[in-house]
Design a protein around this nucleic acid. Sequence first.
RNA 1: GCGCCCGUAGCUCAACUGGAUAGAGCAACUCCCUUCUAAGGAGUAGGUUACAGGUUCGAGUCCUGUCGGGCGUACCA
Length: 546
Amino acid sequence: MKDYLRSIIRTSLQQFDLSNDDIPEIQIEKPNQPEHGDAASNIAMNLASVLKMNPRKIAEQIVDGLDYDERKIQAVEIAGPGFINFRYAENYLFDALSNILNEGTSFGKSNSLGGKRILVEFVSANPTGPLTVGHGRNAVLGDTVANLLEWTGAEVDREYYFNNAGRQMRKLGESVRTRYLQLLDYDVELPEDGYEGEYIKDIAQELIDEHSDGLVDTEEVDPFKDKAEQVIFDDIQATLKRMNIEMDSFFNEKEVYQDGSINETVETLREKDLAYDKDGATWFRTTKFGKDQDTVLIKSSGEPTYRLPDIAYHANKLDRGYDQCIDVFGADHIDTYPDVLSGIEALGYDRSKVDVIVYQFVTLVKDGNPFKMSTRKANFVTLDDLMDEVGSDVTRFFFEMRDPNTHLEFDVGQAKEAGEKNPVFYLQYAHARIHSILRKIDQEYTFDVKDQPKLKLLTHKSETALIKSLLRFPEIIQSAADNREPHRLINYLEDLASIFTSFYHDCRILGEEEELVQARSALAKATAQVLANGLEILGISAPEKM
RNA sequence: GCGCCCGUAGCUCAACUGGAUAGAGCAACUCCCUUCUAAGGAGUAGGUUACAGGUUCGAGUCCUGUCGGGCGUACCA
């Protein structure tokens, strides 16, 4: 419909002497006030300075030149400083409703990203401990954005990038070894900066179950580290699965070392004079890309910093033929990704193919005070704990309902309480209510399948409002996907559920004239479908009974 | 010090990328279950959109400055 409005406005604009450059994007939006119609354009105001005319005058001329289909548009009005307001025709609404019922589980899907292959990289937590609520925002955001992109036609792969080498993993192995020895009554102390979590003891216990005291004399950390990695990864995957997240691939940082691309990357940068040696280290000329300082790629110890494998990894992604790579990470990485972009640009890739979703940190509040989480110090709240308390639907919803770009406060003490009266139930409840009615209709009525519902009977203002809300669904998905902002979908679904509830109170279904029962049940069914499709994208269940 | 993000009702957050009278949910108060699920509904109250300027037909949204909070600013990841 928006496209249709844009096209007829564009046609009418031909009466003005305007070059294409002078015509701004034609914006169509839904007015806040119902009296202002179903759709509005501010085009006349935008053209006022170009045409040097009074915007209302421009609006009048545009409207005079509008050639619109009366089966779609019932009325066009000019209001305020020069808004052009459109009212949809009833027939259009009925056609749209019938279209929703026909499309069913695919209603809302589009092909705007058709043919595009997109890689979404998210979670990417190193296997040093269980996933915490801090990771939760990343995990849910990444998965939901991936779902949104799939609904707009893209072919999406989900990837988890990790590093099982390096200092932190070594500390982890040492910590397991210490706990192992302690469980066997040896008097040893946890190393400095060791991992203090209870889960380390569990891993040590597993080693005892498998090897008894056979590892007591093992000096190398590897057997402990490898066991820890395996146990922790199993745990992480179980947590993800519980949250309805399934990765397509896991990428070990080690791969970019083994296939030589680390070296290639450095060599290429050297050839282009973007890398050089100084003080025993290898530096990346990030000053060429607008930074204040150059950045170390390889430390004087010979060990690369994380930036180098990051650059090689992103090049690897693009080599795999993705049209777009999306990274999801927290605000603490905000200063590092420009280096990665500069790096792949230097290697000859198109940096616009890498897109980054930065989300702000989750602030944990316990007993009214904020506190810092640290995996190493074991003061964290795991996602599993959270799901034990409130379930996975509430957990996902919680991370999806807020703008990624704002700080999110999470009160542990109120988690369960919030779980009991969480807005997610409002959506699920509306869905369950509809199915309850549909079950009763199934029992009490037998509509002839060939008998199309007489949608023309749906003229109550609550019915009209509900239909109008339903048909916005596809454009909501589009904007949520384009902006990588799942909370837009949540806001919409809450609004829809609220409009449905008004309909539910104003318009009875059971016990009315049979034709009206059929028409209203069709409307209810379409509503349930949209709620279910929306919840599907959010990775949240849509129960038929509650 | 410098860079990025945030500041909206008592609390947690929206506001369709600059639109018309800034909205929900909790919490508070008043009502509504002989009616398809009360996990619901109707209503009351609650605001100088941190502050000060600026840009224009129009600013919560854009620009400048101030204040407050978060995160960075490593040869850590």
